[in-house]
Simulated scan of single mutants.
Amino acid sequence: MDPITGLAASAAGGGLFGLIGTALGRVAGHFETRQRLQHETERWAHETKLLELQRHARAEETEGELALAEVSGRWAGLSASMAADAAIGESYRWVSAVRGVTRPALTLLLWLIAGLIWIGADGAGRASIIETATFAATAATLWWFGDRGPRRGPTA
Protein backbone atom coordinates (compact mmCIF):
# COMPACT_ATOMS: atom_id res chain seq x y z
CA MET A 1 0.00 0.00 0.00
CA ASP A 2 2.87 2.16 0.12
CA PRO A 3 2.57 3.28 -3.50
CA ILE A 4 -1.12 4.01 -3.08
CA THR A 5 -0.52 6.04 0.08
CA GLY A 6 2.16 8.06 -1.74
CA LEU A 7 -0.23 8.62 -4.63
CA ALA A 8 -3.02 9.70 -2.25
CA ALA A 9 -0.67 12.03 -0.36
CA SER A 10 0.46 13.58 -3.64
CA ALA A 11 -3.14 14.04 -4.77
CA ALA A 12 -4.13 15.55 -1.40
CA GLY A 13 -1.08 17.83 -1.41
CA GLY A 14 -1.81 18.95 -4.99
CA GLY A 15 -5.48 19.54 -4.11
CA LEU A 16 -4.52 21.51 -1.02
CA PHE A 17 -2.10 23.71 -2.98
CA GLY A 18 -4.79 24.15 -5.67
CA LEU A 19 -7.31 25.30 -3.05
CA ILE A 20 -4.75 27.68 -1.51
CA GLY A 21 -3.94 29.08 -4.99
CA THR A 22 -7.65 29.58 -5.71
CA ALA A 23 -8.17 31.33 -2.36
CA LEU A 24 -5.15 33.60 -2.95
CA GLY A 25 -6.45 34.40 -6.44
CA ARG A 26 -9.86 35.32 -5.06
CA VAL A 27 -8.32 37.53 -2.34
CA ALA A 28 -6.12 39.25 -4.92
CA GLY A 29 -9.18 39.70 -7.19
CA HIS A 30 -11.07 41.30 -4.31
CA PHE A 31 -8.26 43.85 -3.73
CA GLU A 32 -7.98 44.54 -7.48
CA THR A 33 -11.74 45.20 -7.68
CA ARG A 34 -11.62 47.48 -4.65
CA GLN A 35 -8.66 49.38 -6.11
CA ARG A 36 -10.40 49.70 -9.51
CA LEU A 37 -13.58 51.04 -7.84
CA GLN A 38 -11.54 53.54 -5.83
CA HIS A 39 -9.77 54.66 -9.02
CA GLU A 40 -13.11 55.04 -10.84
CA THR A 41 -14.55 57.03 -7.93
CA GLU A 42 -11.55 59.37 -7.95
CA ARG A 43 -11.76 59.73 -11.74
CA TRP A 44 -15.46 60.63 -11.61
CA ALA A 45 -14.84 63.11 -8.80
CA HIS A 46 -12.11 64.72 -10.90
CA GLU A 47 -14.37 64.83 -13.98
CA THR A 48 -17.17 66.38 -11.92
CA LYS A 49 -14.84 69.04 -10.53
CA LEU A 50 -13.49 69.77 -14.02
CA LEU A 51 -17.00 70.18 -15.44
CA GLU A 52 -17.95 72.46 -12.54
CA LEU A 53 -14.88 74.64 -13.15
CA GLN A 54 -15.69 74.82 -16.87
CA ARG A 55 -19.28 75.85 -16.09
CA HIS A 56 -18.03 78.51 -13.70
CA ALA A 57 -15.56 79.82 -16.30
CA ARG A 58 -18.33 80.04 -18.93
CA ALA A 59 -20.56 81.92 -16.47
CA GLU A 60 -17.79 84.43 -15.73
CA GLU A 61 -17.10 84.83 -19.45
CA THR A 62 -20.78 85.56 -20.07
CA GLU A 63 -20.84 88.11 -17.24
CA GLY A 64 -17.78 89.81 -18.74
CA GLU A 65 -19.38 89.94 -22.18
CA LEU A 66 -22.56 91.46 -20.74
CA ALA A 67 -20.57 94.10 -18.83
CA LEU A 68 -18.59 94.93 -21.97
CA ALA A 69 -21.79 95.27 -24.02
CA GLU A 70 -23.28 97.57 -21.37
CA VAL A 71 -20.21 99.82 -21.28
CA SER A 72 -19.98 99.86 -25.08
CA GLY A 73 -23.62 100.92 -25.26
CA ARG A 74 -23.01 103.72 -22.78
CA TRP A 75 -20.06 105.05 -24.74
CA ALA A 76 -21.94 104.77 -28.04
CA GLY A 77 -24.82 106.79 -26.54
CA LEU A 78 -22.44 109.42 -25.21
CA SER A 79 -20.71 109.65 -28.59
CA ALA A 80 -24.04 110.06 -30.42
CA SER A 81 -25.14 112.71 -27.93
CA MET A 82 -21.91 114.63 -28.41
CA ALA A 83 -22.27 114.45 -32.19
CA ALA A 84 -25.86 115.75 -31.93
CA ASP A 85 -24.77 118.59 -29.67
CA ALA A 86 -21.96 119.53 -32.04
CA ALA A 87 -24.41 119.66 -34.96
CA ILE A 88 -26.48 122.42 -33.32
CA GLY A 89 -25.50 125.71 -34.87
CA GLU A 90 -25.80 129.27 -33.56
CA SER A 91 -29.29 130.57 -32.96
CA TYR A 92 -30.98 133.54 -31.26
CA ARG A 93 -29.22 135.06 -28.25
CA TRP A 94 -31.94 133.99 -25.81
CA VAL A 95 -31.70 130.39 -27.11
CA SER A 96 -27.95 130.45 -26.53
CA ALA A 97 -28.54 131.92 -23.06
CA VAL A 98 -31.01 129.15 -22.15
CA ARG A 99 -28.59 126.56 -23.50
CA GLY A 100 -25.83 128.16 -21.43
CA VAL A 101 -27.89 127.92 -18.23
CA THR A 102 -29.22 124.42 -18.97
CA ARG A 103 -25.88 122.66 -18.60
CA PRO A 104 -25.03 123.99 -15.13
CA ALA A 105 -28.60 123.46 -13.92
CA LEU A 106 -28.71 119.87 -15.16
CA THR A 107 -25.29 119.14 -13.72
CA LEU A 108 -26.31 120.47 -10.33
CA LEU A 109 -29.54 118.47 -10.54
CA LEU A 110 -27.66 115.26 -11.42
CA TRP A 111 -25.30 115.65 -8.48
CA LEU A 112 -28.26 116.43 -6.23
CA ILE A 113 -30.04 113.26 -7.42
CA ALA A 114 -26.87 111.21 -6.86
CA GLY A 115 -26.59 112.59 -3.33
CA LEU A 116 -30.26 111.94 -2.53
CA ILE A 117 -29.99 108.38 -3.84
CA TRP A 118 -26.88 107.80 -1.75
CA ILE A 119 -28.64 109.07 1.36
CA GLY A 120 -31.93 107.25 0.72
CA ALA A 121 -30.82 103.91 -0.77
CA ASP A 122 -30.40 100.82 1.37
CA GLY A 123 -27.09 99.02 1.58
CA ALA A 124 -27.99 96.29 -0.92
CA GLY A 125 -29.16 98.55 -3.75
CA ARG A 126 -26.87 101.46 -3.06
CA ALA A 127 -23.81 100.25 -4.95
CA SER A 128 -25.30 99.80 -8.42
CA ILE A 129 -27.57 102.85 -8.17
CA ILE A 130 -24.74 105.08 -6.98
CA GLU A 131 -22.41 103.79 -9.68
CA THR A 132 -24.95 104.64 -12.37
CA ALA A 133 -25.82 108.06 -10.93
CA THR A 134 -22.15 108.92 -10.42
CA PHE A 135 -21.35 107.82 -13.98
CA ALA A 136 -24.10 110.08 -15.34
CA ALA A 137 -23.16 113.05 -13.18
CA THR A 138 -19.44 112.75 -13.92
CA ALA A 139 -20.01 112.29 -17.64
CA ALA A 140 -22.32 115.31 -17.70
CA THR A 141 -19.90 117.46 -15.74
CA LEU A 142 -16.87 116.61 -17.85
CA TRP A 143 -18.66 116.65 -21.18
CA TRP A 144 -20.84 119.70 -20.64
CA PHE A 145 -18.07 121.83 -19.20
CA GLY A 146 -15.16 120.22 -21.00
CA ASP A 147 -16.22 121.60 -24.36
CA ARG A 148 -16.67 125.09 -22.90
CA GLY A 149 -12.97 125.78 -22.87
CA PRO A 150 -11.62 128.69 -24.87
CA ARG A 151 -12.00 128.11 -28.57
CA ARG A 152 -8.90 128.44 -30.66
CA GLY A 153 -9.14 130.04 -34.03
CA PRO A 154 -8.03 128.25 -37.16
CA THR A 155 -4.29 127.80 -37.27
CA ALA A 156 -2.51 128.97 -40.34
Rank of each mutant, 00 (worst) to 15 (best):
D2M: 11
P3K: 07
T5F: 06
T5G: 00
G6V: 11
A9N: 11
S10D: 12
S10L: 13
A11Y: 07
A11D: 04
A12H: 05
A12D: 05
G14Y: 06
G15R: 12
G15K: 08
G15C: 03
L16M: 07
L16H: 10
G18M: 07
G18E: 02
I20D: 00
G21I: 11
A23F: 15
A23P: 01
A23Q: 14
A23V: 14
L24I: 10
G25V: 01
G25P: 00
G25F: 10
V27K: 15
A28T: 09
G29E: 15
H30K: 15
T33V: 07
T33L: 09
Q35T: 12
L37C: 01
L37Q: 15
Q38G: 03
H39C: 00
E40L: 12
E40W: 03
E40H: 05
T41N: 13
E42V: 11
R43W: 04
R43G: 00
A45G: 14
A45F: 01
E52K: 14
E52C: 00
Q54W: 01
R55E: 13
H56V: 05
H56W: 11
H56M: 10
A57E: 12
A59L: 06
A59F: 08
E60C: 03
E61V: 01
E61Y: 02
E63A: 10
E65H: 14
L66T: 04
L66Q: 14
L66C: 04
A67F: 05
L68E: 05
A69K: 14
A69G: 07
E70P: 01
V71E: 07
V71F: 05
R74I: 04
W75E: 11
W75N: 13
A76R: 15
L78A: 09
A80E: 06
M82E: 12
A83Q: 12
A83E: 09
A84S: 11
A84G: 01
D85Y: 08
D85V: 03
A87D: 13
I88K: 15
I88L: 12
G89P: 00
G89N: 06
S91C: 04
S91P: 00
S91H: 10
Y92R: 13
W94N: 04
S96I: 05
V98H: 04
V98N: 01
V98K: 09
R99K: 15
G100M: 03
G100N: 12
R103G: 02
R103N: 07
A105N: 06
L108N: 03
L109N: 03
L110V: 02
L110C: 05
W111Q: 01
L112W: 13
L112M: 12
A114K: 01
A114W: 01
A114T: 11
G115T: 09
I119G: 02
A121N: 02
D122G: 15
G123K: 15
A124N: 08
A124H: 11
A124K: 13
R126E: 02
R126S: 05
R126C: 00
A127V: 15
S128T: 11
I130Y: 08
I130K: 02
I130L: 10
E131M: 08
T132D: 09
T132H: 11
T132V: 04
T132P: 00
F135H: 05
F135W: 09
A137Q: 00
T138W: 02
T138I: 09
A139R: 01
A140H: 12
L142T: 11
L142Y: 06
D147Y: 07
D147T: 13
R148A: 02
R151A: 09
P154E: 04
P154K: 06
A156L: 06
